[in-house]
Design a protein around this nucleic acid. Structure first.
Length: 329
DNA sequence: AAATGTTTCAACCGCCCTCCG
DNA sequence: TCGGAGGGCGGTTGAAACATT
């Protein structure tokens, strides 16, 4: 041992940099370049260690550093690169103009990591977390967690737990879909082996299509997947809303906006977090909640320009629809 | 308005790699 | 080939800002 570290020298200043120190450092580097970082502080008249100067320059004072919030595009890039490179912040930073590894690392730790965890995605593997589904109790809202096991498994508690489960399924599914759109060349994606552990979520009596519940004459058309452009994978989408009779479906004006977003599916969740996407050729990690036959889906326009999308399929879980209804009430 | 809790992010720490004599 | 110096990197810390009670 006994190796003298550059910052071990007594009397060297630590902590936040003052504007005067910043000015000295910038002025020196602009005139002479940084040269040897160890020699720089004395030459620049700074009572700091070389390492501290280097960090201050590379992470804060460098003129090409971009400040401010990360854009949606930058966020997607970080997620994508992290799924490939892991915590190689400097490598990730080389793909983002003006962003430092430190800034990206902080953004990851304070925002993206939490976001993925909330979606039920393992932030290290970028795969849906299978352990979330191993214990239904964990999915219960806090008030039910306080109850004993028997009470917690009352119908209501269990229903909420399943609703939570479905939410997580949906978020995981959406994340995987986005990952696929960003990197369609990765063909090795395999659904995680969690399907068989899931409770049965299919609901055979939820009927979404009920044309008689609409007063306006509607023009129906079927949206087919884009045959020529494999990048365009979404055939259609829908925001289901159960009517007062508990059957049929209506679509709010929001759907009109959503249809415009069809050109860029990644933007859709900005409009509505609970819309359903479905496709014929994107693998789903969760199986049964996706509608696999595009012929089942239809899109229609009303005379006032509104667009609605619907399906006769019965794969959508009832609890999910109830949750959706609540969200739009 | 004050106390307390939470989040953010600049800066530090220490390990590791590369270069060079 | 070895070992020390310099620098890069990822993880962690803690003060300040912000939010909640």
């Amino acid at each position: 041992m006994g190796k003298s570290l550059c910052c071990d020298e007594p009397g060297l200043k630590k902590g936040p940099w003052t504007p005067e120190e910043d000015q000295k450092l910038v002025q020196y580097i602009q005139q002479h370049g940084h040269g040897s970082w160890r020699a720089l502080p004395k030459l620049a008249g700074l009572n700091r260690c070389g390492k501290s100067c280097r960090l201050r320059w590379t992470n804060y004072l460098r003129p090409d550093i971009k400040r401010g919030n990360f854009s949606q595009e930058e966020e997607q890039t970080i997620l994508h690169l992290h799924s490939i490179l892991g915590n190689k912040w400097s490598a990730i930073a080389t793909h983002l103009d003006g962003r430092t590894d430190n800034e990206i690392k902080n953004f990851w730790n304070t925002h993206l990591k939490k976001k993925l965890i909330q979606m039920g995605i393992d932030p290290m593997t970028h795969q849906p977390r299978t352990d979330l589904f191993s214990n239904l109790q964990d999915l219960l809202p806090p008030q039910y967690q306080l109850l004993d096991q028997h009470a917690a498994t009352t119908l209501h508690g269990a229903a909420e737990a399943v609703a939570q489960l479905v939410k997580l399924q949906y978020l995981q599914q959406q994340y995987v879909l986005q990952s696929h759109l960003l990197n369609p060349s990765v063909g090795s994606y395999a659904p995680p082996p969690i399907k068989e552990n899931l409770p049965v979520l299919n609901s055979s009596h939820v009927v979404l299509e009920n044309p008689s519940s609409f007063s306006q004459p509607l023009h129906y058309g079927t949206l087919e997947p884009h045959q020529d452009d494999p990048q365009v994978r979404f055939s259609t989408f829908a925001v289901p809303e159960i009517d007062e009779m508990g059957q049929g479906s209506k679509f709010t004006p929001m759907v009109s906006s959503l249809c415009q977003a069809e050109k860029n599916p990644l933007e859709i969740d900005e409009y509505c977090p609970w819309f359903l996407q479905y496709s014929s050729n994107i693998p789903t990690p969760l199986g049964s909640t996706l509608i696999n036959n595009p012929g089942d889906a239809s899109c229609s326009t009303s005379s006032n320009g509104g667009i609605r999308s619907s399906t006769s399929s019965s794969y959508w879980p009832e609890l999910f629809l109830e949750e959706t209804k609540t969200n739009y009430d």
